[in-house]
Each structure stands twice: as structure tokens, then as C-alpha cells.
Design a protein around this nucleic acid. Structure first.
Lengths: 199, 199
DNA sequence: GTCTATATTATGATAGAC
DNA sequence: GTCTATCATAATATAGAC
């Protein structure tokens, strides 16, 4: 591992502070990923967006894959504090609700990024292959769903997709953030209460 | 428009019969798109999977984009009969339910393809840019949602994502088709009834 | 319908100067 | 931290023979 690059996705996911230059690259990459997908985004496009050359990007990240990793890690890591708070919370039901609110908040605010983080094939493979990501998502679902039988897992899958889709779907492109957040929170809460009133 | 290629996505979406050679290409393309995404899939990969050369693929489709178009058109077109039936149905509520069942059926059966058709950036752009696709999706949502205020659109966005996600999420990878279809139908019906019992 | 061969451009990646 | 220059490879696409 080179001296320029921080450890990538080993240990627990957390907030990671990047240098200004790296942050510019990651911001540009994320924005481009959202529009063209990861595979449809070249390092040249990223470099052009930042206003530097490819070589300068390679000074910050050894491979394109490391850019994808860093982006995914950074964005997922933004949920880490909310997750930790929820896990520390005494009341299970309140913890779930609090985390849900934070997840919806982030999804609504960063609508454009949701498709990339949840559905891009490259990111999906990353999430499946790297243990820290898996562990993080497991913790998320443990809080959001409680114990996970078949019903709970189907429910969780639907929930995650419903939230994602609700913020990125063309149907709701013109709905403002506040309205969307409110409706989404409301419907999601009811969805979680559906099968047998599990509260 | 060349003599070898059929009209692509003008007029209404419908079942389209392709030649055996074209069908082989489209099948391979769809399978590869599902794994690597559209941008992550090259014509070389498609050719290799079919067992022919790139040139042979180009004999069937003038550009890669036309392959993507044809794939999208073919798969979406498979819902056309169900949509027409539903539109012809007298009772609005029964029509909605019948279409829903067909959509879920197809989503569950072709789990691997859902991510591509619903979320791949290239396909999403296609759907947004080509009128026939837009018109088709409008008709789908008209039947599934009835009149479309803000609430209905948010609900529709959630519904589409919830179904998609429920069939493609790692959480439900080991759930068999029958179980998944049953639970999904059940939860979806309840989701549609949620805000103010709109039946 | 499929092939070989080729043109053109873009891609991920590296070396070394400033 | 950024640059110019370069490399090897892979991409989309075409021409023309069988």
C-alpha cells in the first residue's frame, strides 16, 4: 500500500477525512458515476471535471477501482454515526425509527447518488466482496429489521428498494425535499408495521 | 434504416419476433448486462458468449446502442399483452390487481434482469429519451395507480422500487420463487391500500 | 450469417520532470 | 500536487471475402 493512499475499507466503516485534492476527485467521480454509471465513467472524464490530468488522479488513487472503493466507503461511512447511536440506544423501537429517519434524510438529500450506491453493478460487487461493507450492512439491517426470518428479509429488501426508488424515480423528480421526506417517512413507518404489527 | 434491422421502438411497444441469430445475441447481451451493466459489457463479450465474432454481431445490429434498445424493447414488450388486457378490463380495481400480479410474476421469474431494466444508467436514459417507452410506462402507471397526484406518484415510485428490490436484493437471494411471489403480492397489495384506502 | 483484417479512438496505467 | 509523454490493450465500428 503506497504512502499517499489511506487504508481502504479494512476495519470498521467510519468517517474518513481525505485531502482537498482527493476530495475533489471523489466528488467529481460520484457525480459522474450517478449519471453514467461506474463503468461508463472514465478517469479522463473525472480528470476533466476536476480540471486536472489523468496522471494527477493516479497520484491520489492507484487504480480506478480504488476510486470506486473510496467513494463507496466515504458515502456509506456518513451513516456510521447514526448507526452507532442507534445501536447504543436502549429502546429497540425508537432506535429503529431514529435510524430510519436518518437514512431517509440522506437518501432524499442526495437523490442523485442513490442509484449508484444501491444498484450500480460495480458497487454491488464491491459491497458483496468486501467484508467491512457486508458487516456494516448487516448492522444496518439488524437495527432496521430486528431478527431476520424470511419475512423480515423480504420486508427489508422491499424497504431498501422502496426508499431508494422513491427518491430517484422520474415520477417524483419534481417533488420537493420536504414533501418527499415527510411522505416517505410516513409510508415507510406503516410498511414496517404491516405484517402482524411487530412493534 | 438498414434492411437487416427491424424498426426500433417507434409506434407502440409490442411483442417483436427476432431472427434466431438476433435472439441469441439479445439473450447473451441481457445476461451480460445483468452482471456487468450495459457500459461494462463490450460487443466482444457478447460475441464470445454467443460464440461468434464481433463482425457477426454488427451484421445484426448497427451499433451497440441498438442492441441495448432492442433488448429493452423486447423485455418491456413482454408486458404489453398484460397491459392491454388490463386496459380493456371494465373494473378498475380488478384490472390493477391483475396487472400487478403479472408484473410481480415477471419480476420474480427474471430476477437477474430487473436491475438492468430498472436501474442501469444507460437504459434509464433510453427510457427517458424514447417516446414509445415513456408512453408505455405512462400507461402502466395509469392502470397501477389511477389518477396521479403527488401522493400517488410517490407511492408509485416506491412500489416500483419495492418490487424490483424485493426480487434482486442479496437478502432474498435464497428465497424460492413461489414464496417470494406470494409474500410480494401480499405486501404490495397492502402498500397500494395504505394511504386512505383508495379502492 | 459468419469470417479475417483493419482503422480509429479511448481506456487504464506508468515514468519522470517541475 | 500537477504536468507531458508514453505504453499496451481494448473499445466501437467498417470493408470485403466466403
Amino acid at each position: 500500500m503506497g504512502s499517499a493512499e489511506p487504508p481502504v475499507a479494512d476495519g470498521e466503516l467510519q468517517f474518513i477525512q481525505h485531502s482537498a485534492a482527493r476530495t475533489r476527485v471523489l466528488d467529481a467521480a460520484l457525480e459522474l458515476f450517478a449519471v453514467h454509471g461506474v463503468s461508463g465513467t472514465s478517469l479522463q472524464m473525472i480528470a476533466d471535471t476536476v480540471g486536472i490530468t489523468k496522471a494527477a488522479v493516479y497520484h491520489q488513487f492507484r487504480t480506478k477501482n480504488n476510486v470506486v472503493l473510496a467513494v463507496t466507503e466515504r458515502e456509506l461511512g456518513r451513516l456510521a454515526p447514526a448507526l452507532q447511536e442507534a445501536e447504543a440506544h436502549g429502546d429497540e423501537s425508537h432506535a429503529r425509527d431514529a435510524l430510519l429517519v436518518r437514512v431517509i434524510e440522506m437518501a432524499v438529500r442526495d437523490r442523485r447518488l442513490v442509484r449508484t450506491l444501491q444498484f450500480d453493478p460495480v458497487v454491488v460487487r464491491l459491497l458483496a466482496e468486501h467484508e467491512p461493507f457486508q458487516r456494516f450492512m448487516e448492522r444496518m439491517y439488524r437495527v432496521l429489521l430486528g431478527e431476520t426470518g424470511v419475512d423480515g428479509r423480504i420486508q427489508g429488501a422491499m424497504l431498501s428498494g422502496a426508499i431508494s426508488s422513491a427518491v430517484m424515480h422520474p415520477l417524483v423528480g419534481d417533488v420537493d425535499d420536504d414533501t418527499l421526506r415527510a411522505k416517505l417517512t410516513d409510508i415507510t413507518r406503516r410498511l414496517l408495521d404491516l405484517p402482524g404489527d411487530r412493534r
